[in-house]
Amino acid sequence: MSARFYAYNFGIPLFCAAVVFLMFDMTNIDIAFSNLLFDPLTNTFPLDKIHFFETLTHKWARIIPNWTAEIALVGAMLSVVWPLVNPQKRPGLAGFLERCKVAPVLRFAADHRRDFLFVVVAFAVCTGVIHFLKAHTSVYCPIETTLYGGKMAHIEWYNNFQLFHEAGDGRCWPGGHASGGFTMLALYFAARRYQWRFSSALLWGSLLLGFVYGTTRVLQGWHYMSHTFWAGIFVWLACLLTALAFYGRARLELPVLSKRERQVFSAQPEATL
């Protein structure tokens, strides 16, 4: 069972990484695709000049991952309140919170403290990994390079990678906007902990969201298509390693259960955070 888990969760993304590297980084497919979106007469990517498209796909789109991270952070902070209330020692305060309909929220947060903390940490780890790679490869976006009217040279990430110090001012690889959508994969791993039957929907929805986020920036000339794929690979691995640290492999590899089976399974004791 464990071999299948590792083969699926590590093997597939590593295989995808090899395919993306050979298919995109070692060829000119990225440039060929961006050439289709570039208007040589105006020397611009037309969609980059449409204000509404920029607002809709780049600014408003951030609402989903931003709100998710904020809700998780608030939940993590609220998770420590109910144990401090201690209804047995402070029945008056507990009764007041019950009457105000606040107690159920506090109990829910306390029961899911590990999950809220996991989402917060997973988002932070994903962001840190992407920012590290951006700074230590210094790849410039297509629109910034001489290929499309910019001033900077086009350089592949592997030609400029520096492990121990920043490689330059470029910040385009992997795709940052795409990674924002892919970080929603953290919810998939939390759902897997509870063997939720809609966990697959969260998986594919998060992958689709990241792909859409990344593709819109490709259309504007601010990324190559491979940048989106690389963002998805790194975010998946970051979320997976964080989930293993929080939940353990045994919990994550269990099959999805029906509602009744899940209730029975949830009643089983589990180490608290």
Rank of each mutant, 00 (worst) to 15 (best):
H136V: 08
S79M: 09
E144C: 06
R113F: 15
I155G: 00
R197F: 04
H154V: 00
V102H: 10
V125R: 04
F116G: 07
G176T: 02
F189L: 01
E156G: 05
A190S: 09
A191L: 05
V85S: 08
L73F: 15
G150Y: 04
A153L: 09
R193W: 04
V121P: 14
K89G: 07
V102D: 09
V81Y: 12
P83K: 07
V105N: 14
A76G: 07
Q162R: 03
V120Y: 10
V102Y: 08
T145E: 02
F96S: 13
Q88M: 12
V125H: 05
F198Y: 09
F108W: 14
E166F: 00
G175E: 02
G170W: 01
M152Y: 05
L73T: 11
A94S: 15
D115H: 11
L78W: 13
Y188N: 03
K89P: 05
H112P: 12
S179W: 01
T146H: 07
E156R: 01
K134D: 07
A135T: 10
Y158C: 01
V139H: 03
E144A: 06
W196G: 02
L163Y: 00
Y188P: 04
F123A: 09
L73A: 14
I130W: 04
L147M: 08
R192D: 01
F198D: 07
A110M: 10
A135V: 08
A190G: 03
Q195G: 09
S79E: 09
R192M: 00
R193T: 02
C126S: 15
L93T: 14
V74W: 14
A109Y: 06
G75I: 09
L78C: 11
V80E: 13
T146C: 02
K89S: 12
L187A: 07
G176Q: 01
I143T: 08
Y148M: 04
G150P: 03
F108K: 10
M152F: 00
V120M: 15
L117V: 09
G180V: 00
R197M: 03
W196H: 08
H112T: 05
V102K: 07
F118G: 07
A122R: 07
Q88I: 07
Q88K: 13
T145F: 02
F116Q: 06
A94N: 15
Y140K: 04
L97T: 10
A167E: 02
F116V: 11
K89I: 03
L187D: 04
A110E: 12
Y148T: 04
E166Q: 05
E98T: 14
V105M: 15
R107A: 09
G92D: 12
R113A: 14
K151W: 06
F182S: 04
V120A: 12
G75L: 10
